[in-house]
Amino acid sequence: MKKLAKQVNDQSLIIYENIPGIAKTTAVRLAIELRDLRRFETLAQIDAFAGIDQATM
């Protein structure tokens, strides 16, 4: 899985691994699923991409 994440975007993996509380496994999953966070302009866009709806929380 880590090899696959590095193919997606090595820089994103490094960023995710440096977030406090994010373990390597979670960082790899984020890098694979979200790829480069710079493609999102707002947090709401990330929520929409992930299928999280703030209205239901």
Rank of each mutant, 00 (worst) to 15 (best):
L30R: 03
M57F: 12
S12C: 13
D47F: 08
E33C: 03
E33G: 01
M57P: 04
A23K: 15
L34M: 15
L13K: 02
I22C: 04
A44R: 14
V28Y: 03
E41R: 08
R35G: 03
L37Y: 11
K3V: 10
A50T: 02
D53K: 06
Y16P: 04
L13W: 04
E17P: 06
A23V: 12
S12V: 06
V8D: 05
L30G: 00
L37D: 08
F49N: 08
I15P: 01
L4P: 01
P20C: 11
I14C: 10
A44P: 00
V28K: 03
L34K: 06
M1H: 11
Y16M: 06
K3W: 05
G51W: 01
I22K: 02
K3F: 06
Q7F: 06
A44L: 15
M57K: 13
L34Y: 04
R29N: 03
E33N: 06
T56R: 13
V8Q: 05
E41M: 05
R29Y: 08
E17R: 14
K6A: 02
M1G: 13
R38Q: 15
V28G: 00
K24D: 15
D53T: 04
A48R: 15
R39V: 11
Q54N: 10
Q54P: 13
D53E: 10
S12R: 05
M57D: 12
N18G: 02
T42V: 09
Q11Y: 13
F49W: 07
M1Y: 05
I46V: 15
M1Q: 14
R35C: 03
R39S: 10
D47N: 12
R39A: 11
D53Y: 01
Y16R: 03
L37M: 12
I32D: 06
Q45K: 14
E33W: 00
E41T: 05
D36Y: 00
Q7A: 11
L30Q: 06
A55L: 07
I52P: 03
E33R: 02
L30I: 07
R29S: 06
A5I: 09
T25M: 00
K2A: 09
L13P: 04
A44N: 15
D36V: 01
L43Y: 07
F49H: 10
I52W: 11
A27W: 02
E41Q: 07
A50W: 01
D53S: 08
I19A: 02
I19T: 07
N18Q: 09
E41F: 01
K24A: 15
